[in-house]
Design a protein around this nucleic acid. Structure first.
Lengths: 115, 115
DNA sequence: TGAACGTATGAGCAGTTGTTCATATATTGA
DNA sequence: TCAATATATGAACAACTGCTCATACGTTCA
């Protein structure tokens, strides 16, 4: 226990102690991956549309003036991140938000910007 | 008022009405820019270190096993996004978190991951 | 069954990002 | 003032991202 000496440098602050307090690398990596999803304005716009209402791919593309393909590609990422869910009704696929954390995260982002 | 007809397509959903409810493009862009900062594991790690304590560049680099230059570059971005602040004491520059929204955003991210 | 429609996806490309390396700037103490 | 130390920054490069284009898949209806 007490022989656990910091052998690298004589620090005033104990870097090893702080290192031990950090979340695991994998956890931090996953967190960064999640925030990557919010880090694009097209995806952000899609989320804002879905805040208002469940919506099919075609209408999302129309509202945002973005190609159907681009929307579909981004919905794929949102789906993988479990930020949206979907249901099929005939040929039409309706997307909606997956959970409520999403709104909280975005709201806090807004508050930071409008500090 | 009532002559405001949707001329593009005969939609069941009124896409123009939804369009009007969305935040302005610039706002959404700024929000995405903010989340870009959280979208990298090195920056994320830096934030987690600063959750624990104010810290100089050298020690951050040591704790994270990242080069001084890389840390400095990332701190620059964190500074620009007003996520961290700093104070100089001689040759040493100490960084710390700028406000409390940061922790809330990250905590919500955690909750989403651990759903 | 086959045409039409809504959605998904792979390839390719231009633009962006994070790192390293070299070097500049700033502060201290001899 | 000069060497040492702490930090900042520009250039360059490899890796990644988001779009477009072409096309495939899945469903409906005639």
């Amino acid at each position: 226990m007490s022989e656990n000496i910091n052998t690298t440098t004589d620090n005033i602050c104990d870097t090893n102690a702080i290192k031990a307090l950090l979340p695991k690398d994998e956890m931090i990596y996953d967190l960064a991956e999640l925030f990557k999803i919010f880090a694009d304005s097209t995806r952000m716009k899609i989320l804002f549309v879905l805040f208002e209402s469940e919506m099919c791919v075609f209408h999302i593309a129309e509202i945002l003036s973005v190609s159907q393909s681009a929307v579909s590609h981004q919905l794929r990422l949102l789906k993988q991140a479990k930020l949206v869910k979907f249901r099929r009704e005939g040929r039409i696929v309706y997307y909606s938000l997956a959970d409520s954390h999403i709104k909280t995260i975005i709201d806090q982002g807004f508050e930071h910007i409008n500090e």
